[in-house]
């Protein structure tokens, strides 16, 4: 079988540090105390939501660099992305930090796609320190993809809440005692005809199940090899669908399956199906998962970030929602 879209990293680049920042509402998250910085103001002291979006990303980058005793001048690459207008928040953050920058876009799957790119650059020997990650800001994303923030519309139980958070990882050549990147799978854009932008989880679940299948069969792994298999932001509804699809493929769907979107806000029903947004998977992967790996709780994890590749335009023109999922496998040697 030709290994289409499968990557194996012989040098196993490491995640030497992470930086996660989040908005005031994210204090409600059970993971809030793991975040490096939580702002009291949703505009982070800036004038607009978009500037706040960029500021969160800048701060996350600086935190991730400071943890490895570095400054932006020490970093070789900046690989970040978001969902707002041509990724201006990431572009503006890149302008401020001044690291050679490649904008990454895989919608909410950007956390993993940028991590894969950083691992490739590191593996090739061209990078000794790369910053990879993604961010989202609730108000900025909401007004672009849905309605003005103050507009009253009744959201169904399947709809998800875009998180305000930024998460980045510092990727370096292999370092003992840190989680290392062993292999990855680039997802195929899949579309099973879902059209409801208020049920993104259902649209993304098939992409996640497809990437899971391809990763496990392609790399010759089994569910039992992992301590946890965590998806990005499927939410309650999408997570159920994904587990059903994975079960149909013959995988043992157990407690090992977790979803960052479903868990982000805990059991708070005000958030309906759970969290979403590029910052959702980034914030949880780079805190909860990495922390547990450092603590020795997890030895081998599979992270599958999911993204819906729609725009307000494509939705209004009546198109279905294509989705993507990228997988990356981390180990603690």
């Amino acid at each position: 079988m030709v290994a289409r879209g499968l990557l194996t990293f012989k040098t196993t680049p490491s995640i030497a540090a992470t930086g996660v920042t989040a908005g005031p509402l994210e204090k409600k998250s059970p993971f809030a105390d793991k975040f490096d910085k939580v702002y009291d103001d949703e505009r982070c002291g800036t004038k607009t939501n978009e500037h706040a979006h960029a500021k969160m990303m800048e701060d996350a980058c600086m935190i991730a660099l400071s943890k490895v005793d570095s400054v932006p001048g020490d970093a070789d690459f900046l690989l970040i992305g978001d969902l707002v207008n041509q990724m201006t928040p990431s572009n503006f953050a890149a302008t401020t930090v001044g690291i050679p920058y490649l904008g990454m876009f895989s919608a909410c799957a950007t956390s993993v796609s940028s991590l894969v790119m950083a691992a490739l650059l590191t593996e090739s020997g061209m990078s000794t320190c790369a910053i990879a990650g993604a961010s989202s800001q609730h108000n900025a994303v909401e007004r672009q993809f849905r309605y003005p923030v103050e507009y009253g519309s009744q959201k169904p139980a399947t709809s998800q809440w875009t998180v305000t958070a930024a998460g980045v990882a510092t990727v370096t050549p292999y370092k003992k005692g840190f989680p290392s990147i062993e292999c990855a799978t680039i997802g195929c854009a899949t579309d099973l005809g879902m059209t409801d932008p208020l049920n993104m989880g259902a649209a993304m679940a098939p992409a996640a199940a497809d990437t899971l299948t391809r990763h496990l069969t392609g790399h010759g792994k089994d569910v039992s090899d992992y301590d946890v298999i965590m998806t990005g932001d499927l939410g309650k509804t999408g997570f159920e669908l994904y587990k059903t699809l994975a079960g149909n493929q013959g995988f043992d769907v157990s407690e090992k399956f977790r979803d960052a979107g479903e868990e982000f806000y805990g059991a708070d029903t005000a958030f309906l199906s759970g969290a979403s947004g590029a910052g959702c998977s980034a914030a949880i992967f780079f805190t909860e998962v990495i922390d547990k790996m450092m603590a020795g709780d997890y030895k081998r994890v599979l992270l599958i970030a999911t993204g819906a590749l729609l725009s307000p335009l494509s939705f209004q023109q009546g198109d279905t929602i294509p989705c993507i999922a990228h997988a990356i496998e981390l180990t603690m040697k």
Partner: peptide, 30 residues
């Protein structure tokens, strides 16, 4: 208003206040 809307659905969208909310929320947002 958005909280009333999440609770009341069309009950807050159909009255003229819903029309007002649509105009006003867009004005504040932009």
């Amino acid at each position: 208003y958005k909280k009333i809307a999440q609770f009341g659905g069309a009950g807050s969208a159909v009255p003229i206040t819903g029309f007002g909310n649509a105009v006003i929320s867009a004005a504040i947002e932009h």
